[in-house]
Amino acid sequence: MRELVRTNDMVLVSAIGALLDGANIHHLVLDQNMSIIEGSLGILPRRILVHEDDAQEARELLTEAGLSHELRGDD
């Protein structure tokens, strides 16, 4: 799995999830439970991960959607 985005913005997490779902790219949102435990203060970011094989397509999708500034470095 490769980390695509890390953010505290739940609206952005939802929007990216919808984009990935629409493109049939399986993804995971990690750290949601930790964020709930911390009281939804927005301190702990959520991480969106995609399978290694889908990483390039997912990055292109988010770039086309104008979200390239949200992408994590291409390790």
Rank of each mutant, 00 (worst) to 15 (best):
A15P: 00
N33R: 15
A55P: 07
E52G: 00
R47I: 14
L71Y: 10
G22H: 03
D21H: 13
M34F: 07
G66F: 05
I48D: 02
L49N: 03
H27Q: 07
L28P: 00
R72N: 07
A23F: 02
D54L: 12
A55Y: 15
L30P: 05
A15I: 00
I25D: 01
G42E: 15
G42I: 13
I37P: 00
I16E: 02
E70P: 09
L28C: 06
L20K: 01
L49F: 10
S40G: 07
H27W: 05
E60W: 03
G66I: 03
Q32H: 07
S68A: 15
I25S: 03
V29Q: 01
R72E: 13
A23L: 03
G73N: 07
E64N: 13
S40A: 06
A65H: 12
L19G: 02
R72H: 04
L30F: 05
G42S: 10
V29I: 14
I16N: 01
A55K: 09
I48Q: 04
S68H: 14
E57Q: 05
M34H: 14
G66R: 04
R59W: 05
R47G: 09
L62A: 11
S68C: 08
L49M: 10
D31Y: 10
H69F: 12
E60G: 08
L44G: 12
N33W: 14
R59S: 01
I37V: 08
H26C: 11
G17Y: 06
S35E: 08
Q56G: 00
T63E: 11
L67F: 09
Q56M: 06
T63Y: 11
L67S: 10
A23E: 14
R59L: 04
G17R: 14
I43D: 05
N24A: 15
L30D: 01
G73H: 03
E52N: 02
E52A: 04
G66W: 04
E52H: 05
E52M: 04
S68N: 12
R72V: 04
I36C: 07
R46G: 00
L41A: 15
H26I: 15
R46L: 08
I37N: 01
I37A: 06
D31H: 13
E38I: 05
G66C: 06
A23Q: 10
I16A: 03
